[in-house]
Design a protein around this nucleic acid. Structure first.
Lengths: 112, 112
DNA sequence: TGCGCATATTCGCGTTATCGAATATAATCA
DNA sequence: TGATTATATTCGATAACGCGAATATGCGCA
């Protein structure tokens, strides 16, 4: 087993390692949104969203603010969008390979 | 299910979402290393390392060069270390919370 | 050729993640 | 208070992950 620090870093990346959670974070780029608004934007099950939000909360990637009936989420730190932007550059740098990977991902998705 | 692009991004983060793989990438920061050298550095099972390397390869995060008997690995793109550096800043920015999280991670590890 | 070293792959199994359904909580409002 | 809305949690099933043991592959060298 590796060090605690590496475990910590890994846990943050792991939280980012799901398409729905990437979508949530991208949805929050523009500013805070209520859970309901996110749900509508992503059109996923309410419970499922709540589970993903719980993970992002537990990793401290988002904060939430309760207002009356609803809960508003926002990104905890702009560093996150920074990382996503870098990944976009990374994606472009490896465009050819990435396209191939996308193909494989698509193929996998179809066979499910 | 979210878009293909988000699935792709998530798959890259997911590859980073394991302490051993973080350790591998950090080990490769200084330059290329043979699989054996990495194994020695991390002191993990040979098969296990090979599995992790396979994942990093499949996500295009590392390249490998065969030389005679051995295989040398290196980071595909400096963007990776850039992301790790940013995460370090992130970690420092949230030091207080992170320390708490580390405590939780440690506690979890002990109870296993 | 046949042996030995470095690395990769396969297999079986335990653990963790993910999902939808159902249920719980908590706030508002009639 | 009771109904309604918004969100969270629990549960059970399935899928994916991670590991070590065993085995396979591939290269160099006697």
């Amino acid at each position: 087993m590796q060090g605690v620090l590496q475990t910590y870093k890994a846990s943050v990346f792991q939280a980012l390692g799901h398409p729905t959670r990437i979508a949530i974070i991208e949805a929050l780029r523009e500013g805070e949104l209520s859970a309901g608004a996110i749900q509508e934007k992503l059109s996923i099950e309410q419970a499922n969203l709540s589970q993903h939000l719980a993970i992002l909360r537990s990793r401290q990637l988002v904060t939430n603010r309760k207002e009356g009936n609803q809960v508003f989420y926002s990104l905890r730190n702009p560093v996150l969008t920074e990382v996503l932007d870098i990944m976009r550059r990374y994606f472009q740098a490896h465009l050819a390979d990435s396209i191939q990977m996308l193909g494989e991902i698509e193929a996998e998705q179809k066979t499910r």
